[in-house]
Amino acid sequence: MSSETPAIALDVRGLRMRYGARDVLTGVTFTMKRGEVLALLGPNGAGKTTTIEILEGFLMRSAGNVSVLGIDPAQGNEAWRARIGVVLQSWRDHRFWRVRELLTYLARFYAPFATAEVARPWDVDELIDVVGLSKSANAKIMTLSSGERRRLDVAIGIVGRPEMVFFDEPTAGFDPHARRDFQDLIHRLSDFDNTTILMTTHDLDEAEKIADRILVLDEGRIVADGSADQLASEFTTAAEVRWTSSGRRHVHAARGGDATSFVRDLLIQNDDVTDLEVRRASLEETYMTIVQRAESAQSRGGIPNGAAAKISDVRA
């Protein structure tokens, strides 16, 4: 039924947000396909939480067009709300409740929103198991560690089997094992349930592993958009080639990010090459380059990026 599941889950055009005299978002434009996993990166204060809260319908935007699952979040009704999952950057509510108690309570609201395609809500005990809280199922929430509390937040975010989930720094406070579990969960949600996932994180390694696509937000606008590989080849010029020959270690920065032809020549010309290593720029290096470049462009007076150009169209 294509009419019920349009290919676009989220559409943001020229989104602007202003607090008093301060512009926090200055024209954010992007779309997400159904089932896509997108990581929103950016320095502290870039506007990630602001963007997510607007998409969740919690904050009212200053300008721009936004559609989440075909509906403007500012006008989203309860049926829309039932299709959205929310994990905020931090929660401290329901301290006196127990883990299973709270999940069971919240799950009840979603039952009438079940459809032939989507069985709602998630079975509570199964969900507790999936997020790895089985041992704490009867624990009082205020006694959970911060990582356990975060797992509960993730569980609450998906208890209604949402079609679109917003995670704001979901893995803050997770141990390596919990991080791995979270990656598996995200893959499970997007692969089996076709859930569309938008998450923010400061863990670039995690973004690279989880996300189909990465968006870098800086000073209120999007400065990069693509897969980790695309960003690396677009924004970083060099791949690093290291090798040993005639008993000496050599390092070469291959231009254009493509070291293949350099390595081919190298191997043809030297037959004693050992310990050959080709390292593409890591996402971290790429990210640093992107943010630095965006900020120096900003201080030079700003470059009109695609999004900014579209804004002037909208306002004209």
Partner: peptide
């Protein structure tokens, strides 16, 4: 102040509950 109401808002008909 502790976010319980926001949690209700994030839930369909959560404010009614």
């Amino acid at each position: 102040e502790d976010g319980t109401l926001l949690r209700a808002k994030a839930t369909p008909n959560g404010m009614l509950g």
